[in-house]
Simulated assay, not measured.
Amino acid sequence: MRRVARVVLLDPHDRILLLHGYEPDDPAVTWWFTPGGGLEDDESRERAARRELAEETGITDVELGPVLWRRVCSFPFAGRRWNQDEWYYLGRTRQTATRTAGQTELERRSVRGLRWWTPGELAATRETVYPTRLAELLRTLLDEGPPGAPVVLETERV
């Protein structure tokens, strides 16, 4: 089980930053997802969240908040099956310009770009977004604030 830290990154206007991913062997298969990735060695999840955010987006000026959600997921990608235990941290930033120079070789072959989404745009999209209930989860977060303890999301298997 791969341990993963992700960031629900919000700007001052409550827009969320998502990456546009695709299957390297089939660029027609696309989805949107939050920044983040696997822990390295004995790295903490918080440290991994900050490192991954910087590598994937170039954003380093971030106030990292509590863990909002946890989920287990399993999916095929780049010729193998990935099984992940993901923790989603709340992140706030004023830095909205992105830079992808720090992405890994695999990310360069599988990320088409980044985009800031309003809650309304996210709720209206017909594109695939992970986690699948992200629009609803974001609306609850903005309406009610962070949960007192991380919410455990249903397991997703693709």
Rank of each mutant, 00 (worst) to 15 (best):
M1L: 08
R2G: 00
R3Y: 07
R3D: 12
V4Y: 03
V4T: 09
V7F: 12
V7C: 13
V8G: 02
L9T: 10
L9Q: 02
L10D: 03
P12M: 15
D14V: 06
I16P: 01
L18D: 01
L18R: 04
L19F: 01
H20W: 11
H20V: 04
H20R: 12
E23P: 01
E23Y: 05
P24A: 01
P24N: 08
D25E: 13
D26K: 10
P27G: 00
V29M: 04
V29P: 00
T30H: 07
F33R: 05
G37D: 08
G37S: 11
D41T: 13
S44Y: 10
S44K: 12
R45Y: 10
E46S: 13
E46K: 09
A49G: 03
R51V: 11
E52C: 06
E55F: 11
E56R: 04
E56A: 09
T57R: 06
G58V: 04
I59F: 05
I59L: 01
I59D: 02
T60A: 15
T60V: 07
T60C: 12
T60G: 15
D61W: 10
G65V: 14
P66L: 14
R70W: 14
R70A: 15
R71A: 06
R71S: 06
F75D: 05
F77L: 09
F77Q: 05
A78R: 02
R80M: 11
R80E: 09
R81I: 10
R81C: 09
W82D: 01
D85R: 13
G91T: 01
Q95A: 14
T96G: 00
T96N: 08
R99Y: 06
G102W: 12
G102N: 09
G102E: 13
T104R: 08
E107A: 15
R109Q: 07
R109G: 04
R112M: 10
R112S: 09
G113Y: 11
L114D: 04
L114Q: 08
W116G: 11
W116Q: 13
W116K: 08
W117A: 04
T118R: 10
P119Q: 03
A123R: 15
A123D: 14
E127T: 07
T128Y: 00
T132A: 15
R133P: 14
R133N: 10
L134P: 00
E136V: 14
L138W: 00
L138M: 08
R139G: 04
R139L: 09
T140P: 02
L141K: 04
L141Y: 05
L141F: 03
L142T: 02
G145A: 09
P146R: 00
V151Q: 03
E154R: 13
T155M: 04
R157S: 13
V158C: 05
